[in-house]
């Protein structure tokens, strides 16, 4: 069972790598932020599987932190971009 879980974690790592191609290509900053989403789901799944297969319960706590961090990262991203748009009025934010 543990062998299968290791193999499966490797498969998930492959899907993350495929997703990272998009993060590398962009083209927009939002496309790059998808990395946070990718690690927030596939990354958490990998950690859960490894935690089980390696009998390392602490990895589940790491997964929990990943899940929370994904949200914080996105909020920070939006704050930063919104702050920029404000300092540059012609930057496209439609007065909302």
């Amino acid at each position: 069972m543990a062998d299968f879980q290791f193999g499966y974690a490797l498969f998930l790592l492959l899907t993350v790598a495929i997703g990272l191609v998009r993060v590398g290509r962009g083209p927009t900053a939002g496309d790059r932020m998808l990395a946070a989403q990718l690690f927030g789901t596939s990354g958490v799944a990998i950690l859960l599987l490894l935690g089980r297969a390696m009998q390392q319960p602490a990895l589940w706590d790491v997964a929990l932190v990943f899940a929370v961090l994904a949200a914080v990262t996105a909020v920070a991203f939006v704050q930063r971009v919104a702050g920029r748009a404000e300092s540059k009025p012609e930057g496209g934010a439609d007065g909302s």
Partner: peptide, 10 residues
């Protein structure tokens, strides 16, 4: 948040 940000940027 990502979708809203993209929409607001036009």
């Amino acid at each position: 948040l990502i979708a809203r940000n993209a929409l607001r940027q036009g």
